[in-house]
Design a binder for these strands. Sequence first.
DNA 1: ACATTGAATGAATAATTGCTCAAAACATTG
DNA 2: CAATGTTTTGAGCAATTATTCATTCAATGT
Lengths: 313, 313
Amino acid sequence: MAGNGNRLDDAARAAWLYYIAGNTQEEIAAKLGVSRQSAQRLVSQAMAAGLVKVRIDHPIAECLRLATDLKARYDLQFCDIVPSGLDSDSTTIGIAEAAATEIERWLTREDPIVLTIGTGRTLKAAVECLPRIDCPHHTVVSLTGNISPDGAAAYYNVVFTLASVVTAKTFPMPLPVIASSASERKMLHDQKIVRSTLAMAERADVSFLGIGELGESAPLYVDGYITHDELLALQKTGAVGEIVGWAFDADGEIIQGLTNERVASAAIPSRDTSLVIGIAKGSVKRAAIRAAVAAGLVNGLITDEATARALLA
Amino acid sequence: MAGNGNRLDDAARAAWLYYIAGNTQEEIAAKLGVSRQSAQRLVSQAMAAGLVKVRIDHPIAECLRLATDLKARYDLQFCDIVPSGLDSDSTTIGIAEAAATEIERWLTREDPIVLTIGTGRTLKAAVECLPRIDCPHHTVVSLTGNISPDGAAAYYNVVFTLASVVTAKTFPMPLPVIASSASERKMLHDQKIVRSTLAMAERADVSFLGIGELGESAPLYVDGYITHDELLALQKTGAVGEIVGWAFDADGEIIQGLTNERVASAAIPSRDTSLVIGIAKGSVKRAAIRAAVAAGLVNGLITDEATARALLA
DNA sequence: ACATTGAATGAATAATTGCTCAAAACATTG
DNA sequence: CAATGTTTTGAGCAATTATTCATTCAATGT
């Protein structure tokens, strides 16, 4: 009723009445003067629009244990394990929320920090879980370029998504993800703005990075940043994973040459002076994750129970 | 203890699978190796134990919370808070629409009601938001006179505006707002038509009233119903606000004497037997609104977020 | 050992929620 | 203004979730 009002407003109202006030959808329908079905639609729209944030406030003992073990085994500063259904290879569910919680924890700090962020599906999902946070005193820097091969904005670059929900000062990288040549990369990196952004990235206090795999469905390849031949070449030199574009082998050694000569991303921030959290799960990424934590490419990890077990086995 | 903690662990896990991973309770039961109803019990235990935190990320959510708090704090039957834009002192925007919605809700009822209405800019704006409503079974009564000091129709008397858009039986008060003397008021009120209108007002089911302030820009003064000296006199006795002309102090006590001896309006309808909704916002009206709700001059309130916060502070 | 109590369980059932589909309302275009 | 495509709506139905109730099980006191 009430004329037009914003549709999302009503959705939020309905969601509030449903989740917070514990009303049944029929009661909501009555209060809002719509049919029960419409009330149901409003609630699920609020859901779909990501207005509803649920968090479980309990350290599940088993996950805690795994986290402690992993921290000891791989000398991690930070580790969060999310419960998994026994079979779960299902995308980003779970760790995205956990990552969002951790990002939120950092962005709600009083003292100003520099947070750097990578790319990827998981990270994107995590940022979409974030509530609005007012934190103009913080700085968010993207480690990766935001221009996709076809010149469009890179879809999985998350800095803009983050900026739309958080009031921190944000610095995207006005670069392609992978330059066409080593010399082009040098030229791009010599630009004044890029240099200052790269410099800022080096002052990171905390970083959130996806860990990508380099199999047939490697995101770098699937999203068109590298060709199939380039992928094969990487695999041939033993590359098993990639962080902000930098391919590394099973020992966590950054591959020399090949596409790594042209990766336009900033270097992974120092693990000696800052917290670098990798976020990934799933059996297909296992080798990549293991290499990354074993070699100390990251000193923090958010993953799920199944992956944690595999990393400890 | 141990049993209890373990149980909560499972509850947390079940809640996690349910709310975050979106599993159905049957799936959870399978994964946790318990029966479906046990899974249900775990989830609801997690709920009861407060493990599950839901948050709605939308300004509306805050408004609903404020409304609930205000209802509890001031023992209100009804409260609606509209989000305030950045310029929170800007006239009637927002609450007018909200008031219109509530008026409409009452006028679209099947069973016949008596609705009484006051005056003022906010109420005028509210009525102008109303759609056409066919409701000949309802009765609308003005609580205030509709004759301005210069003999013309009082501009902010809303009964005529309302009548132009709604088919209810409407009863204006063929009176000045403030009589020239106490005896004139008595004489006027003794008229047969006025008496029946006043009697009708006493049978109100719901009332919509503006809350006016009594500072330098008090509507009563600005619109010429009282002189500047009368305004000063009221202020001197501690008057902070006014409803349908009746001035009251910071404790919500109706001022004795002064202009109140000549206010020709009907009394504010009973808050014990009917819903009396005050509609006002803005920092300049804060004291008046606080006094009105605290003393129970009204038992319903429509205001904005900023004012609601101030009332709770 | 045995009765008593109280929590936990699963079956049955009631209530609520989610989905599909056809009709209606709406907007757009020729 | 008719024709068209799109969105919104509510009814009916299927799926899911909550509650009730009789029963079991284990623990405790007599």
